[in-house]
């Protein structure tokens, strides 16, 4: 059996292999008396007992260390998940941050191109946000952003992705949705936000929303499509705020 064993392990168990070889030699020696054999047998029994004792201890320690290792691994996975979450979320609103919502926008754009389906996006901005900050302070401003984000989150559909695009600006990506369907979502959001009172001061805000989809004017790049939603949002602001405007090519 000795020949099948890993040489590294043979070194780790060198005393045990040595003992085995010695006792094998004694067993073959015809000149050994019965008394001597009995003595050797006692020694062999004692080594076997020690070996068994060590084997059980080593196994127990091996199990403890394996458990420790797996627990460390689980903790690492947990930390990784937390780290990932914090890398994709906006700290104030806990919705996706700009880099992640842009990633999802890019993904949607690429998939739409590849599978020739459609997607929409909504760019929205809180109206007269500067006035809230100036009148009620930055804390109130932060609360307005947070609460507005919460209201929007409650109105989008499960497949839509939503993130903070800038200070008081948000972007929603709506896969497999045309501009008309996106408009219905946008209007629900607009009305909900307008009807919500925020904080102890019962602040009220409205939002303006711009919409475009991936078929209108067939944008060739992500930037081109974003530019169109931006124009639509600009028009919503210009024509009186608290409204939804879908981009049209002939404006």
């Amino acid at each position: 059996m000795n020949d099948d064993i890993d040489p590294t392990m043979k070194k780790v168990f060198k005393h045990e292999f040595l003992a085995l070889n010695n006792y094998q030699l004694i067993g073959k020696d015809l000149n050994v008396s019965e008394d001597e054999l009995r003595q050797h047998y006692q020694h062999l029994l004692e080594s076997y007992r020690l070996l068994l004792q060590n084997a059980t201890k080593i196994t127990a320690i091996g199990d403890i260390n394996q458990k420790k290792l797996f627990e460390a691994f689980e903790e690492l996975e947990r930390q990784k998940a937390i780290l990932y979450q914090s890398s994709i979320l906006d700290y104030l609103t806990q919705v996706y941050n700009r880099s992640h919502i842009m990633q999802l926008f890019d993904d949607a754009f690429a998939q739409t191109k590849r599978y020739q389906n459609i997607f929409s996006c909504i760019l929205l901005d809180i109206d007269d946000f500067k006035a809230i900050n100036d009148t009620h302070g930055h804390l109130a401003g932060d609360l307005v952003i947070k609460e507005t984000a919460r209201q929007i989150s409650g109105q989008i559909r499960e497949t839509d992705a939503f993130g903070r695009y800038g200070g008081e600006e948000f972007l929603i990506v709506l896969p497999n949705t045309n501009a008309e369907e996106a408009r219905q979502v946008a209007e629900k959001i607009r009305i909900t936000v307008a009807e919500t009172t925020i904080g102890e001061q019962n602040l009220r805000v409205t939002i303006s929303l711009g919409i475009s989809d991936s078929l209108i004017d067939k944008p060739k790049t992500q930037d081109e499509m974003l530019h169109k939603v931006d124009l639509a949002l600009y028009k919503a602001k210009e024509t009186g705020k608290n409204r939804t405007v879908t981009y049209t090519p002939f404006d």
């Binding site: 590294t8 780790v12 005393h15 060590n54 080593i58 320690i61 091996g62 260390n65």
Partner: peptide
Amino acid sequence: DYLNTSSTKCLFD
């Protein structure tokens, strides 16, 4: 802080 099985055996010896 951590011992693999071979190291455990060596430390026993």
